[in-house]
C-alpha cells in the first residue's frame, strides 16, 4: 500500500497528517518525505540517523581533444545547459535535465556523460518508522529526479506513507505517479477550497483514487464540505481547530503524543483508506503499476 499525502496549498497540515498517521500504525511503516525543497517531517521525529546517499543525474562531459566548437550541442539543447562560442562548450550542469541529446547530436562524438550531484537522501529510524527524506541541494531547481530517487526506496512489504510537495506543478506529479491512494489535506477556508479544487483536478487527471482530510475544522465555512458532497469525494477524517494542537505543533510535538486519543482516530483513517483503495483496484491500475516497476 502506497499512500501519498498531498495538498494544493502549503501549510494545511500535510506533514502533520503524514507523521501522525505513520506513528499511529502498529506495524513497521515507511515514511518518505518527497517535499525535497522543504522536508519538515524529520523535525517531528526523534531517532537515530541511518545513513545518507548522494543522488546524481547524468550531465555532459566534453572531450576537448575531439570537440571542434561547432555548437551543434548548444543549438540542440532546449535548456541552454551547453553552449559553444567556437571553442569547447561552456556547461551549465545545474540547468541540465539529463536528456542525452547533446551527446547524440555531436558529430564528432566528443560528448560523454558524467554524474552530477543534486541532493541527498537521508534515512532515520524512529520507533516503528523508517523515514527516508530527500534534501535538494540549495540552488538546484531539479526536484523530480530526486523525488524519483526517494521513491526507489519503496519497500513492498510495509505500508508506505509519502509526504508529497505542495502545489500542482511537476514535482507533485513526480511524487504522485504510481501511488495507490492520495489523501488530500485541506482547511475549510476559501483559500483551502480553491487550492483543493486544483489538487482534485490533478489527482483525477492521474486517475488515482483519493479522499480528503479536513484540518482545523471549525474555522471557515461549509463550502469545502459542500464541494466534497457534490463531487462525491469522501471526507475521511476531520481534525478540529484546537489551540492545544496548534501549540503542540509549534513545539514540534506529534498530535498523537500530546493527545493519545488521536492514535485511534488515525488508525481508523488508515482503515478507511485501505478499504477505499481495495475497492478501486482494477486490472487497469494494477497493470499500470507493474509497467512502472
Amino acid at each position: 500500500m502506497i499512500l501519498a499525502v498531498a495538498s494544493g496549498k502549503g501549510g494545511t497540515g500535510k506533514t502533520t497528517v503524514s507523521v501522525n498517521l505513520a506513528r499511529s500504525l502498529d506495524v513497521e511503516t515507511q515514511l518518505l518525505d518527497c517535499d525535497v525543497e522543504e522536508p519538515n517531517g524529520y523535525l517531528f521525529l526523534d531517532g537515530e540517523a541511518g545513513g545518507s546517499q548522494e543522488v546524481t543525474i547524468p550531465v555532459p562531459l566534453v572531450d576537448a581533444a575531439l570537440c571542434d566548437g561547432c555548437n551543434a550541442c548548444g543549438k540542440f539543447c532546449e535548456y541552454n545547459a551547453i553552449v559553444s562560442f567556437g571553442k569547447i562548450p561552456v556547461l551549465f550542469p545545474e540547468m541540465c535535465h539529463g536528456c542525452g541529446g547533446c551527446m547524440k547530436v555531436c558529430p564528432r562524438r566528443a560528448i560523454q556523460e558524467t554524474d552530477k550531484r543534486i541532493g541527498v537522501i537521508e534515512t532515520m529510524r524512529s520507533g516503528n518508522i523508517t523515514l527516508d527524506y530527500g534534501l535538494l541541494d540549495v540552488g538546484v531547481a531539479m526536484a523530480p529526479p530526486l523525488i524519483r530517487a526517494v521513491k526507489k526506496r519503496i519497500r513492498n512489504n510495509t505500508p508506505v506513507i509519502l509526504d508529497a510537495p505542495p502545489g500542482t506543478s511537476c514535482p507533485v506529479i513526480a511524487a504522485l505517479r504510481d501511488v495507490d491512494f492520495v489523501l488530500l489535506v485541506t482547511e475549510p477556508t476559501p483559500f483551502g477550497l480553491h487550492d483543493l479544487r486544483l489538487a482534485v483536478d490533478v489527482t483525477r487527471e492521474m486517475a488515482i483514487p483519493f479522499g480528503v482530510v479536513i484540518n482545523r475544522l471549525g474555522i471557515g465555512d461549509e463550502r469545502t464540505h459542500d464541494f466534497c458532497r457534490k463531487e462525491n469525494i469522501p471526507i475521511l477524517m476531520e481534525i478540529p481547530d484546537d489551540r492545544g494542537i496548534a501549540e503542540a505543533y509549534s513545539r514540534g510535538e506529534l498530535i498523537v503524543d500530546a493527545y493519545p486519543e488521536y492514535r485511534n482516530l488515525f488508525q481508523q483513517l488508515f482503515g478507511r483508506i485501505l478499504r477505499l483503495a481495495q475497492q478501486n483496484v482494477t486490472d487497469d491500475t494494477s497493470e499500470r503499476r507493474s509497467n512502472a516497476r
Binding site: 532546449e78 535548456y79 541552454n80 545547459a81 553552449v83 551549465f92 540547468m95 531547481a141
Partner: peptide, 8 residues
C-alpha cells in the same frame, strides 16, 4: 525560453 535567459 523555459530557462537560461542570461546564457541566451
Amino acid at each position: 525560453a523555459a530557462q537560461g535567459a542570461g546564457i541566451q
